[in-house]
Amino acid sequence: MTQHKSIDRGAVATMVLTGLRDVLASNDMELPPDLGEETSLVGRQAVLDSIGLVTLVVDLEQRVESEHGVVIALANDRAMSMRNSPFRTVATLTDYVCTLLAEEHGA
């Protein structure tokens, strides 16, 4: 995935991790000590269950809207049909949010 220069990837990664921590906390789920970009969001190693992932995706859409003033749909047809899901890890999700933000900003 390519990223646009005007998008601060570090800030987006922080936003994803903050959202993840909030979802884990609000669902009384265990907060892994090594939460980071390699943290799995889907599959056997995932820190979230399926409803937790849904909640995280919705939460991120709302954070993007309030922090960047743009409406993006993370769960769009493209994401659902990608061979490599953008929801695999914190890193892939961060990249995906950056890509959508870059597109919104006219990259």
């Binding site: 609000s26 909640t55 919705v58 859409e61 709302q62």
Partner: peptide, 8 residues
């Protein structure tokens, strides 16, 4: 529902 789920 996306807005509702914030307050559970």
């Amino acid at each position: 529902a996306k807005l509702m789920q914030r307050s559970r």
